[in-house]
Each structure stands twice: as structure tokens, then as C-alpha cells.
Amino acid sequence: MTLDYILGHMNYWFFVILMMIGLYIVISYGNLVKKIVGLNIFQAAVFMLYISMGKITGGTAPIFPTDLQGKIQIDPNIVYTNPVPHVLILTAIVVGIATTSLGLALIVRIREQYDSIEEQEILDIDAATAHAENLAHGQAMGGRA
């Protein structure tokens, strides 16, 4: 691995690191809002992956210049960057925003119902509810189940 190789793939290193940071936050943090933040970092890393791969060395923006009559002038010597990944990632960004807003809306409702946004506290409340249900069920079934 030469220095050129390492520096030349800078974007991809960032992609790997950011993706791992995002995923780690989602898994390890107990605060529901922080989980959403982690998810956002995770998704942003993927946006970066897509945008990086559209770049072609020496490529310019893929816009065909027109002359005064409005005719498209295509110069075969100009290298254009691939626009498709950018378009794809625009879609993915919209999906990401929808996911984030839905997640935050759910957190607001959870906060109203549980009075907490800490995963452990919510799990404890749920476990207590489930325990009470199971106890009631067991007694109703004559201590058999």
C-alpha cells in the first residue's frame, strides 16, 4: 500500500470510518435521539460513498454547453463526471429525511407515554408491564402456565 493509494482513496476511508461510527452509536447509545443521530451519520456515510464513486478524475460537471441558438455543443475531449450516483443519492437523502422525521415523531410520542427517552428506562417499564401480565395470566390459568 503506497501513500498514493491511501490518499487517493481518502473518501472511501472516511466512508468506512463514518459508517462504523454511525453504526456504533446506533447500537451502543441508550438515548433514543442519539440513536437517530447515529443512524443519520450511518446514512450520510453511504451518501458519501455514492458521491465519491460518481467522480471521474479530471471530470467536470455533466452539463452540455449550448451555443447562442440553443444547440447543444458536445466537445468529445471534455471528460464529464457521472451524474447518476448523485441523482440516486438525492432519492436516498429524501428517504433519510423521512426516516429521521418519523423517528423523531415516534420519540415525541414515546416521551409522552413513557416520560423518558432512555432505552433502559423504557425497557424496565415494558418488562414490568410484561411481568404483571404474565403473573395475571398465570394466576388465571390456575398457576399452571
Binding site: 433514543l32 418519523l102 423517528g103 415516534l106 410520542r109 407515554q113 423504557i122 415494558d126
Partner: peptide, 9 residues
């Protein structure tokens, strides 16, 4: 709500 949140993540 928590089920939906888990599913979302």
C-alpha cells in the same frame, strides 16, 4: 410505539 421505533432502527 417502542416496537415501531425498534422496527424503524
Amino acid at each position: 410505539l417502542t416496537a415501531a421505533y425498534d422496527y424503524l432502527i
